[in-house]
């Protein structure tokens, strides 16, 4: 077993633990902090089901972003939809036999890779060109884009320029999941690609990538409008409420 294989295997295990553990920790945190008052952005749905669909529309269509800025919306959708297809495409490295619909999606995966990188460049361009967005960008915002672009481009290089031994890569990941380690090809582009993915996984729970769980917990989006019908007393406000004499 080569040192590279061991290093990457350990790195992926640790990254997975940090990613999953970190997200569970964050989600628990978000879930336990109370929402003492009803603050949905109105007009808001009147029922839990309505609020659920509102969040779904935000997740799938970026509804609010569509209202606010068509350029960011287009680039955002290119990137996120591209990434989603690419991620699904990558499932083939983790399952055997590969599910039927994952096979179907394979040819689109490549276009999705380009879409994703194009979207990222669009978003990055705005950060540089639009004075308002330039003002609010900190180094980490640029680095995050650089990281994602590098992951995307290294992936595309493997598809179009170098010939990566995908069979061996799959064996490596299947081995990781079965705790039966298999050698990882030592091709530089692959190692870069995977190394950056590990970095992304580790950064996830500590960075603005928390916008993903955040969206589900955003009170302005996930609350429904029933404040006149039902009280929403937070536990920390209950003592105040109880000491009223009337």
């Amino acid at each position: 077993m080569s040192l590279v294989t061991v290093a990457y295997a350990v790195a992926f295990y640790l990254a997975t633990i940090i990613l999953v553990g970190g997200l569970i920790y964050r989600i628990r945190e978000y879930a336990t902090v109370p929402s003492p008052l009803k603050i949905p952005t109105m007009p808001a749905p009147l029922t839990p089901m309505g609020a659920f669909w509102r969040v779904v529309r935000e997740v799938i269509f970026f509804e609010s972003l569509f209202k606010s800025n068509k350029w960011i919306w287009i680039f955002g959708v290119l990137f996120h939809a591209g990434l989603a297809v690419v991620l699904i495409r990558h499932l083939r490295y983790f399952i055997e036999p590969v599910w039927f619909w994952v096979v179907l999606i394979q040819p689109f995966g490549v276009y999705a890779g380009f879409a994703m990188v194009a979207g990222l460049f669009g978003l990055w361009g705005r950060r540089v060109v639009v004075d308002r967005v330039r003002y609010i960008s900190s180094p980490s915002d640029h680095l995050m884009l650089a990281l994602l672009v590098a992951i995307g481009i290294s992936g595309l290089i493997m598809r179009y320029v170098t010939r990566t031994d995908v069979i061996a890569v799959k064996a490596f990941f299947m081995g990781l999941m079965r705790f039966d380690w298999q050698p990882l090809p030592t091709e530089p582009v692959l190692l870069i690609h995977l190394g950056l993915v590990v970095l992304l996984m580790v950064l996830f729970p500590f960075s603005k990538l928390l916008h993903i769980p955040g969206l589900f917990f955003s009170p302005t989006r996930n609350q429904w409008d029933n404040a006149r019908e039902k009280r929403h007393l937070a536990t920390w406000a209950a003592p105040m409420d109880a000491q009223r004499d009337t």
């Binding site: 705005r126 603005k208 937070a234």
Partner: peptide, 24 residues
């Protein structure tokens, strides 16, 4: 405040600096 208000807690983490709000 971050322990008392979910809005405050979540909003501080979730912003991606997309800039959509900058001209609103």
């Amino acid at each position: 405040m971050a322990r008392k208000y979910r809005s405050f807690r979540v909003f501080l983490d979730a912003c991606v600096k997309c800039g959509a709000c900058t001209d609103k």
